[in-house]
Amino acid sequence: MSLLELRKLNKHFGGLHVTNAVDLTLEPGEIHCLIGPNGAGKSTLFRLILGEHHPGSGEIFFAGENITALKSFARIHRGLSVKFQVPGVFKGLSVRQNLEIALQSRHRGAELEAEISRLLGFLGLESEQAQMAGNLSHGQKQWLEIGMAISLRPRLLLLDEPTAGMSPEETHMTGEMVQHLNADGMTVLAIEHDMAFVRQVAQRVTVLHLGQVFAQGSIDEIVADERVAAIYLGQAHA
């Protein structure tokens, strides 16, 4: 059984069809990257999956259950988790407290403390734990939010541009982080512009264009596809 299945998902704002009959299936255990030019509808698709937007028509199945009508927090309880495009950390709270808030619903007491320390180590943020999250560098904020997202031990992790604003080294480290999580059994769906990252982690790639699935396949197939190159170049020339 597939983990996530989008069936003919439509969302329009006024006359603008942001997603148009999108079909997408995610198998358990895969790392799937979603690429496409700006305005292709990638972030809107995330918001539909998370329940922040509701589709005009179409259905969303998660692990066989129709979740189209569920509220966002209920979808999180089913095993979804997200890192937003703009890092959504709790800026006025310490790094440690950020993680505590993410972890406290599954752990208590000494177990909670141990889990926070383990996660700080995994993210390389031990020396920043007492800092206000708002004072972190952009890359560190991204990692902190990834840390919060994986605290929930999700079955499906959604990453919206996880490496935006990162140096090539940081991007590579993020890629290793994602592969590490995947090796532990986490399914990942990532929106990403950085092709080095996509090449590093993606097992399958879906190209979204004008709200529709334009192409799908392995990274090599996508790179070799002249039509895909054309939509990117077309945009660059526009």
Binding site: S72, F73, G88, F90, I101, M148
Partner: peptide, 24 residues
């Protein structure tokens, strides 16, 4: 308490709090 944690989390960023599974 953990309740207070959620309350300040909602003040800081309600969307993030909801996406950690809390019914804001």
């Amino acid at each position: 308490s953990s309740f207070g944690n959620v309350i300040v989390a909602i003040r800081e960023n309600p969307e993030r709090a909801e996406m950690l599974g809390y019914d804001v």
